[in-house]
């Protein structure tokens, strides 16, 4: 079970690795437009999370995942294709909110499913637990940042001051990702 769970996060890990590389080369050095990238990244991030969650859940949660998929795609289409006049940061915030709710819901379902199983192993021994904690903390800590990004800019505040929250939580999440993969390989 552990092995299967850890393998399912590989696409997400690959996305994280590729996005880091892309952001350094194209956005930091070549100064490409980050709006298009953030749009693609959000879509890919949601897809990989959808993959992880459906691979590690029961039929009931797969139905919920399908509903979230429809809602996410619907909003994505609305913001990125129909209502293109909406600011990117604002639309990204709404899409992040859907992702956040999806992550919270899956985490709760996963915790409940762990308690239902009769295994006596501590959660700290499960590699997937670190992934879930990382996701939960990252999405909980950044949801206000993503929702208020546009407002922060509109009010003339420096977004970089607030973006530090994202940087710290990204670091925290990636450390937990490493722990998760490392523990997964060890078992």
């Amino acid at each position: 079970m552990n092995n299967k769970a850890i393998k399912s996060i590989y696409p997400f890990v690959l996305l994280v690795a590729l996005s880091s590389l892309y952001e350094i080369i194209f956005i930091y050095f070549l100064k490409s437009d980050s709006d298009d990238w953030s749009m693609v990244y959000l879509l890919l991030e949601f897809s990989t999370l959808l993959y992880v969650f459906t691979k590690n859940s029961q039929k009931f949660f797969r139905i919920i995942s399908f509903i979230f998929f429809i809602v996410f795609i619907g909003f994505f289409y609305h913001f990125k294709v129909i209502k293109t006049e909406i600011y990117t940061l604002q639309s990204d915030g709404y899409l992040s909110l859907i992702e956040f709710l999806y992550v919270i819901l899956f985490s709760l379902f996963w915790f409940v499913s762990v308690f239902k199983r009769t295994e006596e192993d501590s959660l700290l021994k499960l590699p997937f637990f670190y992934f879930i904690v990382g996701l939960l903390v990252y999405f909980s800590g950044t949801i206000f940042l993503f929702l208020f990004s546009e407002e922060i800019i509109q009010e003339g505040l420096s977004l970089y001051e607030y973006w530090v929250v994202n940087l710290i939580l990204v670091l925290f999440f990636r450390i937990l990702l490493i722990v998760s993969i490392w523990k997964g390989r060890a078992t």
Partner: peptide, 11 residues
């Protein structure tokens, strides 16, 4: 205020 309070509460 909303940003820092919200982020702290969520974390």
């Amino acid at each position: 205020s909303v940003f820092w309070l919200g982020t702290s509460v969520m974390l």
